[in-house]
């Protein structure tokens, strides 16, 4: 499943401007096979950036009516950090139900899944997919794609931060010597057990260092992380 996302991730890595990124985010709709996809970021100073596939009419209506006040997705995700299926949000109020009706009229879909992201320095973002299908189909979809959605939401967020903030994000995301040592050993063919032994750390610790490096490198998995680190000239092997 994750394999199908690699071309999208590579294109996101190549984005240099918010316009490039915007195009790649919109293209993710096909990679995730959903009707709509939204990425919305608010930084600590309140600056916002959004890329979304909804119709202009719905976006205008949402802003004019200030639906963020009653939207259960916003209410349920703001300042939180666990992904939510829209089904698990509170739609019981009259205003929320009316809002849902309008959203469905606008083609948002009857199903949705949102990943709240907490970034550095109080940054917050929300990555959402929405779709029209029955509950069983949606349950199958989220069961198989949740991990991919979490991964992708963070790739997009890291790229948006990198473009917006330039160099200060790079220093935050840079690999520590220990992470480079770990990746270097894997790159020269050590097994995890051998690498852990050489570094005098446990395999659990090694796994966490690899996972931290994978995240900072914006990679899908360990192999991809090694390829990215090598191509960026971070490892001396």
């Amino acid at each position: 499943m994750s394999g199908t996302l690699e071309p999208s991730i590579e294109r996101i890595h190549r984005a240099e401007t918010l316009e490039d990124l915007n195009g790649e985010i919109l293209a993710l709709r096909e990679a995730f096979e959903v009707e709509h996809l939204v990425y919305h970021s608010v930084n600590s100073t309140g600056e916002q950036y959004a890329a979304l596939t909804y119709s202009d009419e719905w976006v205008d209506q949402y802003l004019t009516e200030d639906y963020a006040r009653i939207d259960p997705v916003v209410q349920g995700c703001y300042r939180r950090f666990h992904p939510v299926d829209w089904k698990n949000l509170n739609w019981s109020g009259k205003a929320a139900r009316e809002f849902m009706g309008r959203a469905q009229d606008a083609g948002v879909g009857n199903q949705g899944f949102s990943v709240p992201i907490r970034g550095p320095s109080g940054q917050f973002a929300l990555f959402t997919v929405s779709h029209q299908c029955n509950d069983d189909e949606w349950a199958k979809y989220t069961e198989t794609r949740t991990r991919d959605l979490i991964l992708m939401s963070h790739f997009v967020n890291q790229k948006a931060l990198e473009i917006e903030r330039g160099t200060d994000i790079t220093s935050l995301q840079s690999l520590s010597p220990r992470e480079k040592d770990t990746l270097t050993m894997l790159a020269v063919g050590y097994s995890r057990a051998q690498a852990a032994e050489s570094l005098s750390i446990s395999e659990h610790t090694l796994r966490v260092y690899i996972e931290s490096a994978r995240f900072k490198l914006g990679a899908m998995n360990t192999t991809h992380a090694l390829a990215r680190a090598l191509s960026m000239g971070l490892l001396v092997v």
Binding site: I117, Q173, S176, P177, Y209, S212, F215, K216
Partner: peptide, 11 residues
């Protein structure tokens, strides 16, 4: 933590 900034959506 050996100077490692531990960061991941899965940790």
């Amino acid at each position: 933590t050996d100077g490692v900034h531990i960061a991941s959506p899965f940790i």
